[in-house]
Design a protein around this nucleic acid. Structure first.
Lengths: 213, 213
DNA sequence: CTCTTTGGATAGTTTAACTATCCAATCACG
DNA sequence: CGTGATTGGATAGTTAAACTATCCAAAGAG
């Protein structure tokens, strides 16, 4: 298909598609003549992924490009590629190889989970805990345990739902696995937060019943 | 204290403090002379709240101002003020009074929670569900139920931990309640997401044990 | 054969969040 | 009292990200 059809089917403005091409998020089509190129279904799919990442997930274009690069060319170790891909999602917390992440370490060890300071999520947790502390709302051990229990259960469900194709170990499936993991993380997190906020209101309404309305 | 001390104790650059004053996030100090003002502990506290909102919570300055205004002057109905304050937190989803939010409605009713299209979280959920769908990762009913169960439990814990001062109903306590709710939502959400990502890695490592490293 | 459409390059726009400069009025100290 | 450093406040400048608009030569369509 021509670029105009890509624009029409995706709903993304032409100037923006050109921008993504320029920035390397969207691979160029196969040139048919000096001034014309052909685009495939894959381009359309890629465009949807780009919009999911930059829109719902809120990634800057530069980070989206990094994530897409990992999807396109996962290196040998799938586990590591997955980690790096998810690390590119917000909130961004650079991993300091010499950091010791005391708050995060205490939390993770309390929960009996494995602690590897290389995980970007460790740095994210450390920053989040520190921010809460700095603002005067430190997180209690009971809260950590309550959250940890329920989130681990959610994580078990998530992994259980992972399509078997994505769990395969051949290189071709690596791309699918990374794309699934990245999109699943980026797209389901807002759902989780919205559901928690709604649950808050449900619980609060129960407590305040009669006191309100 | 003078502005320089405010700068020193908060760690926020002078130019930025002036910017917050200009933008109305930080109330002016009490002027002692034509060119000097006095700032209190409250200003220091406010500065910490501002940094929590604009930094960790990722609010644009304009939205932070709206949240702070609600903290300063909650109107009569605390429940509504709370709703509006939390609605100002990202992700931003404008509430359309005529919207019917079909996906969110289905989810909330399936969970047996109360559904009020006025809640910003309903619009947030709708958008999040739509984004997942558009990207080709629709959310199954089983997932909704699993998430819903655990998130409701987390919400129950959250409300149970709310300091009694914040649950008081006199106007003075309204500010404290809103500040607590907003900061708690904004600061704990990143903790929740980081913990889920870590749980993913813990579960994945368990599944892949032997297959990896 | 002409007239519209296309691909691609280049430059411009917009918004947000600071950041730097200026200036006159103090304040601190001797 | 005098003088040099500091302060409050106004104004303008900077930076970065994400588009958006313009231009031009080369196809393609009727």
């Amino acid at each position: 298909m021509r670029i105009s059809q890509l624009v029409e089917e995706s709903g993304v403005p032409l100037a923006t598609v050109k921008y993504y091409l320029r920035e390397g998020l969207l691979p160029p089509g196969t040139a048919t003549t000096a001034t014309q190129a052909d685009y495939s279904e894959q381009h359309l799919h890629r465009l949807r992924v780009i919009r999911a990442l930059t829109g719902a997930a809120g990634l800057p274009v530069q980070r989206a490009r990094a994530v897409l690069a990992l999807i396109d060319a996962p290196d040998g170790d799938l586990f590591e590629s997955l980690g790096r891909a998810v690390a590119a999602l917000p909130p961004y917390a650079g991993v300091d190889p010499d950091g010791d992440y005391p708050r995060a370490r205490a939390v993770i060890e309390r929960l009996g989970q494995l602690f590897d300071p290389q995980y970007a999520a460790v740095a994210q947790l450390e920053h989040a805990l520190k921010a809460a502390e700095d603002a005067g709302l430190p997180i209690s051990d009971e809260r950590i345990e309550a959250y940890g229990r329920h989130l681990h259960a959610i994580a078990e469900f998530d992994l259980g739902q992972m399509p078997s194709a994505a769990a395969a170990s051949d290189a071709a499936a690596g791309s699918a696995a990374i794309e699934y993991a990245v999109l699943g993380t980026a797209l389901y997190e807002p759902v989780i937060l919205a559901m928690r906020r709604l649950a808050h209101q449900d619980v609060a309404a129960g407590i305040l019943e009669g006191g309100h309305d």
